[in-house]
Amino acid sequence: MSVTAAPSRVASRLAEIRGEGRAALIGYLPVGFPDLAGCIAAARVMVDAGVDILELGLPYSDPVMDGPVIQRAVTAALAGGTRVRDTFTAAREVTATGAPVLVMTYWNPVLRYGVGAFAPDLVEAGAAGLITPDLIPDEAGEWIEASDRYGLDRVFLVAPSSTPERLARTVAASRGFVYAASTMGVTGERTTVGAQAERLVRDTRAAGADLVCVGLGVSTGAQAAEVARYADGVIVGSAFVRALLDAASPADAEARLTAVTEELAAGVRGGKS
């Protein structure tokens, strides 16, 4: 069905990184936190310190897949007046660093904007595509069509509860990579990454996925190293947001983000033994 011959930029980058014998570090930040400029600055710091791909979260009033840390940041971003259009601004600025940008968004803001208008605006902003935590392929007809037309990635999620049939369906609908939720739960830092994450990645590959990245609950270098053994990418959100929340000043934020990124970047490199 795809009318776009262009390869996915994210998939190309992930394959390149695999060629280096390591996993990719994918870092999440909510747009507009601490403010628009601060978020863009933070993303640049993260890219400089070793984040390979940026996941920019479009702030939404009802983020049911997010835990307390990201909720706090998103609530602050919205209270600060962050708009949907700021996501395009942030994507444009961060893409200029050379790191591919995926926008993470709950579905209603896209519906409200109009799927047919959102897709070309993503392209115009230089974003590679969308990660959609509350949109399953079964409900994504319009998005699949638009993303095909504009050559955008569509990253759907699989979960430890996904049946083999659903894994196959989700893998077939995805473009860029498949997002494996490491655990049954919401975003947030956890002390361990469950054994079910490795099983899920294996099952997702068995269902036909080439590139599988793991998110939810990864916050330390050791966890990143563990996940990097079996996944193509390690997705980290709350640990970065926590660094921003805890920062006393912009300089402190930069120092904290750099430290977190370097630890995780070392993790994704040390994982392949």
Binding site: I136, F156, R166
Partner: peptide, 12 residues
């Protein structure tokens, strides 16, 4: 109507 929920809930 529909099912606009995380994949994790579909099995349930």
């Amino acid at each position: 109507g529909g099912r606009f929920v995380p994949e994790a809930l579909i099995a349930a």
